[in-house]
Design a protein around this nucleic acid. Structure first.
Lengths: 229, 229
DNA sequence: ACAAAAGTGTTGCACGTACACCCATGT
DNA sequence: ACATGGGTGTACGTGCAACACTTTTGT
């Protein structure tokens, strides 16, 4: 079929706001750019969408290239389409956010040339970022806090096995407020998607806490009704 | 500054899912296309974003060109970025939805050449639409129903002055279920953003109902706290 | 024994839900 | 007078918020 579309100098990109949780703090994954524009600046990991890949696929690819992680819950949250948000031309960017397990694993190592390094930075006291990335981050953070209240996204940030106190500390860090221990536990357990393990915490110099894991199967079963029409 | 961006054959568009309420039914604004591809098909109103306009601006412009309406609450809800969603090339589209007052006003008349006509169609029993517009519509409809539960978007669909029964019928049509009259009124009035008018309904052959209007100022005052950090 | 965090129940309040009858008005 | 929708209150159950002490374990 003949191509009748206008020929604009326009490009799509995606930018990822990737949250992690470490040392009791909520963190976001940043890169140090190695290319113009904004060479040497800090930025959210993001890149141009390929001509022959879907936007969703691009988001997964870039997340993989920067972190080595797959099968992460990654979701689109907003598209940023201001005319002058990119100094080199018309670029609209689709923002995605993901929550991943930091796990104290190996150093993050970008496999793409455009980033000099990638690292976790606490979400509080964020430095100035390239482009409109500060705005993109803020929007993602807001959305994430909202979602935390009605979707079990917190578990993506924790190790597979965790204690209820760890879970609570995470909620407190993200929502930035203290929660009541008894109410928190009651509520979490009442959902019925936490699986209590026989195992206990190790290496602590006080009473060891029970470990739990998030049971995706039970979660799906419980909330399948909410889909509807 | 030198343009270093890759030169892709790619274009952004926007598609609008515009809801209206008429004759007790929820309706969506469709157009009959007058251009290839999908010439003569029914579709959501949408068009290509200009090189020098923001995506948000494009959405407002297109809504205006198709309906003559301004100052409508129009919101982005999702971006559709599959590779082959457009037969002529790579087009990603940003979906917006809006709710407007049908008002029994003058016929809708497209001022752009690409649509032969625009008209309201009940959301139930929607015909087959061009491109992936059925999918876009479904996503908007779902989002809209969700939003109805926690934002006062329903008032955009009603005339400025309305009765509580009209409001309830609208909720019932959108949510597709019956609601209890007493509970519905109690809840709506408890919010405190409905202003009771001295005026009453006219021209009905039964007891005339009180008219209300939605008080945006009160709403803003009541819910300004929810913004935060 | 002590330090440190784990673990555990009850009460009041706000909110949603279920439910049925009299009232005002136009014909 | 009658038909039609307008308008109103109560009782119950659920879920959330406030609140403090005992238990377990490692040192």
């Amino acid at each position: 079929m003949e191509l009748k579309l206008p020929h604009f100098d326009s490009v799509f990109s995606i930018d990822c706001v990737i949250f992690g949780f470490e040392a009791g703090e909520l963190k976001v994954l940043l890169i140090e750019r190695n290319e113009d524009p904004f060479k040497d600046w800090l930025a959210l990991p993001g890149y141009i969408v390929g001509q022959d890949e879907s936007v969703d696929h691009a988001a997964e690819r870039i997340l993989y290239e920067l972190t080595g992680l797959r099968d992460v819950s990654i979701r689109q949250f907003h598209t940023f389409g201001e005319v002058n948000r990119h100094p080199q031309g018309r670029v609209i960017t689709v923002g995605y956010f993901a929550l991943i397990r930091i796990n104290g694993q190996k150093e993050l190592e970008p496999v793409t040339h455009f980033a000099r390094k990638a690292f976790w930075h606490p979400v509080n006291e964020l430095p100035t970022l390239a482009f409109d990335h500060t705005e993109i981050f803020k929007r993602a953070y807001k959305k994430m806090r909202t979602k935390l209240n009605y979707e079990p996204i917190a578990f993506d940030l924790l190790p597979e096995k965790f204690t209820l106190t760890q879970l609570q500390l995470l909620y407190e860090a993200v929502l930035n407020k203290k929660l009541d221990k008894r109410n928190f536990r009651k509520k979490m357990l009442s959902y019925g998607f936490l699986k209590e393990l026989a195992e206990k915490q190790k290496g602590v110099s006080y009473r060891a806490a029970k470990l739990y894991k998030f049971d995706r199967r039970k979660y799906a079963k419980i909330f399948q009704n909410e889909l509807g029409s």
